[in-house]
Design a protein around this nucleic acid. Structure first.
Lengths: 315, 315
DNA sequence: AATCTCTCTGCACGAACGTGCAGACATCAC
DNA sequence: GTGATGTCTGCACGTTCGTGCAGAGAGATT
C-alpha cells in the first residue's frame, strides 16, 4: 500500500496541477473520495514531490533584489514581509523561503555545511524534502557549552537536514568555544576531528546566518553558557560587528587579531570563502551591522533576507 | 500601472506559494481586496510566471513511462486519463500536458518547427507563455489545399506559438501536397523557400503528431481537399501506417518508394531524424499503428501520450 | 463639459478545498 | 478469540477561493 500512496499522489498531482482538474473530478476518476485526493495532494506538497518555481522575465526581477545583487555581487532573495509583523513571524517566513532556495542549491553528490542557531533552526523546521544520493550534511561549528544544552539542540537541527535530504550527517562534537587555544590546536590534530574539518572544507554549500549581540532574540553564542562577560566586553572593544558560526569579524569584514577566534570552533573566514556557495539567511534589522560587514568581507554568495531589512541595507 | 501589475503578481505568488499564505492574508498586507489577489495569482499562472514542477524520486517514475522509455529509447510522458472520457477530452488533456513538456524543451536561441493538425492546434490553445530571446518558430509543412481553408488555420496555430514564446514566426506558404513533383522541385530551388527549408533543418525541437486515416476525427490530410480517393487508395495499397507532417511511412518506419512523398511539403524522414528533439504528441487509440511505425523508425525522441493508448502500445 | 469606452476594483454568491471526527479494517500480542 | 494499536477512509462542516456583476475612475471623443 505504501508504494501505491506515492503513485496515487503523483497521479493526483499531475491531474490537479498539470491538467487543472478539480479534486472532485480527480476523485471520481480515481474512485476515492474528494478528501482523499485533497490529502494525497497535501502529502505530495509536503514531501516535495511538487515544486513551485518562479519564472521572472529577467527584466522584472524585483529591483530590490537586483540592486542588492549588483551592489554586492551576490544573488539575493528578498522575502516580502510587512514591517508590522513580529520579529518571530518575519523569521519564520524568511526561513520558509530559505528552505526552498536551499533546495535549488543543494543536491546529489554534494556536501552541505550547516551552522546552528535561531535562524538555521527555523529553516530546519521548514525544509522541503528532496531525495538526494551520496550527499552529506556536516555541522559547521561546535555546540558544546558550559550548560551542555547546545549539543542536543544542534544535533536535532542536523538530523532534520539529514532526514529531509536522505543524507548522512556528521556531527561536530566539540565545544563552541575552547577555554584554551592550545586545547583546540591539540584536538585539531586528532583524526576524528580532522575528518570533520576536511568535510567542512569540501562542502559545496554552507548555510548560516549572522550572529548578533543585539535584537530581541540575541544569538545563542552571546547568551549565558558560551561567553562570559569579560569576553563579551572584549569583543565590543575590538569593534566586532558580528559572527558566522562563532567566528567574529569587524565592520570591514576582517577578522585578524581577534583573539577569541583562536578558540572558536568554526572555520576561519578564509577557509569559509573557499566554499563555492555560501548561503546566508538574515531576518530582522538587528542583523544589519553584521550583515553589512559580512558582505563587505565577501563572505556571502547567496542571501535570503526579509523585505524591511533589505531596504535598510541599501540606504 | 501595467508594470506594477506584474510586480504585484510576483509578490502575491511568492507569498501564496512560497510562504503558504492565504489570499485573505496577502490581501491585507497588500492593501487590496481578496478578489484582486485571486486575480493577480490567476494572472501569474496564466502568464507562466509560476511553474509547477514534478520531482519524481527516480525509482518512482510511473512504470508505464519507464517501460515505454526503455523499450523505445525515448522519454515518455503518460497523461492519466480514464478510458471512459470522450476522444475530445482525451485530446484536450493530453495537449495541456504537452504544452508544459514543450516549455521544458524549448527556450532562448532555439528554433521550433511545428507541424499543424488537430493535435497541434489543441496544444497551441494551451500553451503556457514563456519569454524567450532570439528564438524562432517555423512551420514544418505546407497547408495549402484545393479548398484553401488550411492556410489561415495553420497560420493561426503558428501565431499562437509565436505569441506564447515572444518568438518570430516563419510561415511555409506552399500547398500541403503538390500535384506534380516537378513543381515542388522547382519551388525548392527558390531562395524564399530555401530559407524556410534551411530553418527547418536547423530546428532544435520539432513538434508533431501522427497522422492517421482512421478514428472519429481523421487527420486533416486524409480529408477532402488534400488527397483524392485514388491517392488514398494507393496509400492503403502501399501499406502506409501513418504520416508526420504529410510525409508517409510504413509499418516498419520506412518511407522509400512511397510516391506521394515526392509531392509532399514536409521534411523527408532522414532530414527529420537529424533534429535533436522530436516531440510527438499522440492521443487516442487510432494513432497507435502510426505511432508504432514512427517509433520503429526512430522518428521520435520525446512522446506525450494518454494513459489508455500508452497501455495498448506496450501490448 | 458631456459622453463614451475601457480597465480595474470590491462585493457577494456559489464552487472548491482542508480537516476534526468517527467508523472500518488490518496487524499484532496474549 | 479478544482486545489493543495504528492506519486509512468518507462525511460534514467551516474556510478559502473563483467569478459575474455593477460601480468608480481614467482617458479619449465630440
Amino acid at each position: 500500500m505504501a508504494e501505491n500512496r506515492l503513485e496515487d499522489a503523483v497521479r493526483a498531482v499531475r491531474m490537479h496541477y498539470l491538467q487543472d482538474m478539480t479534486m472532485e473530478a480527480i476523485a471520481r476518476e480515481m474512485g476515492v473520495s474528494r478528501s482523499t485526493v485533497s490529502r494525497l495532494i497535501s502529502f505530495a506538497r509536503e514531501s516535495g514531490l511538487i515544486e513551485f518555481r518562479l519564472h521572472l522575465p529577467d527584466e522584472h526581477v524585483p529591483n530590490i533584489e537586483q540592486r542588492i545583487g549588483t551592489q554586492f555581487g551576490i544573488t539575493a532573495h528578498v522575502v516580502p514581509v510587512p514591517d508590522t509583523v513580529s520579529e518571530l513571524e518575519r523569521l519564520e517566513r524568511t526561513a520558509m523561503v530559505a528552505a526552498r532556495v536551499l533546495n535549488n542549491l543543494f543536491g546529489s553528490d554534494m556536501v552541505l555545511a550547516v551552522a546552528w542557531g535561531n535562524t538555521v533552526e527555523a529553516i530546519s523546521r521548514r525544509l522541503v524534502p528532496k531525495t538526494t544520493h551520496n550527499s552529506q550534511i556536516v555541522q559547521l561549528n561546535g555546540a558544546g557549552s558550559t550548560e551542555a544544552t547546545g549539543i542536543s539542540y544542534a544535533s536535532e537541527i542536523l538530523s532534520r537536514f539529514g532526514k529531509a535530504y536522505g543524507a548522512r550527517i556528521e556531527q561536530f562534537l566539540v565545544p563552541a568555544f575552547f577555554d584554551y587555544a592550545d586545547t583546540k590546536r591539540a584536538l585539531w590534530r586528532e583524526r576524528s576531528v580532522r575528518r570533520i574539518l576536511d568535510l567542512q572544507r569540501r562542502a559545496d554549500v554552507a548555510l548560516f546566518s549572522i550572529g548578533s549581540s543585539t535584537g530581541d532574540v540575541p544569538s545563542h553564542v552571546y547568551r549565558a553558557g558560551y561567553l562570559n562577560k569579560a569576553e563579551l566586553r572584549t569583543l565590543k572593544q575590538q569593534d566586532v560587528a558580528g559572527d558566522i558560526a562563532t567566528v567574529f569579524f569587524r565592520r570591514d569584514g576582517s577578522s585578524t587579531g581577534i583573539e577569541l577566534n583562536e578558540r572558536a570552533s568554526g572555520p576561519n573566514l578564509s577557509t569559509l570563502k573557499r566554499l563555492r556557495r555560501r548561503l546566508c539567511v538574515a531576518a530582522g534589522n538587528h542583523k544589519l551591522p553584521g550583515l553589512r560587514a559580512a558582505l563587505e568581507g565577501g563572505l556571502i554568495t547567496d542571501l535570503v533576507i526579509d523585505d524591511g531589512t533589505a531596504r535598510r541595507l541599501l540606504t
